[in-house]
């Protein structure tokens, strides 16, 4: 499994990249929830609350794009297609990087599902009350 080092991959890798996608999920959650609280308390929304739902939609799209970007970075680190390695138990720089990439990809997927779930009420619920 362990092979020659790959010069095109970053030699160092930071823990924060692992949790970048779930952090985006958290920010998305806070922004949608906080925004909704403010819209519902301070803005006259009209019958279908389109302003609020548009806001949720846009925030959700932005979050999904950001997670996709993080997922892509993680996917590059994982570099699955070069050796189809998904176990990463060797004590090498390569395996460590691939592991962080692998976990990062999985977390991006879960975060994306979380963002979609949290955005869904904006599609189906038509007002604050």
């Amino acid at each position: 499994m362990a092979r020659a080092a790959k010069p095109h991959l970053p030699p160092k890798t930071a823990l924060w990249q692992l949790i970048a996608a779930p952090i985006i999920w958290s920010v998305h959650f806070v922004v949608t929830y906080g925004g909704t609280a403010i819209f519902c308390a301070k803005v006259d929304l009209g019958p279908d609350a389109l302003a609020l739902r548009g806001y949720i939609g846009i925030v959700t799209l932005v979050a999904l794009l950001a997670i996709a970007a993080m997922g892509w970075l993680a996917w590059r680190k994982w570099d699955l297609t070069d050796d189809w390695d998904y176990i990463h138990e060797e004590p090498t720089d390569e395996e460590r990087t691939e592991f962080l990439g692998h976990a990062g990809v999985l977390l991006s997927v879960v975060s994306a599902i979380g963002v979609i779930f949290v955005g869904l009420p904006g599609l189906v619920i038509t007002g604050c009350t």
Binding site: Y33, A37, V110, P121
Partner: peptide, 19 residues
């Protein structure tokens, strides 16, 4: 709470089942 907010928390509560 606003119905919309209930939706967020309900959705997130279902999502946590995945991990």
């Amino acid at each position: 709470l606003p119905a919309m907010s209930l939706g967020f928390f309900s959705a997130a509560s279902e999502a946590v089942v995945i991990p």
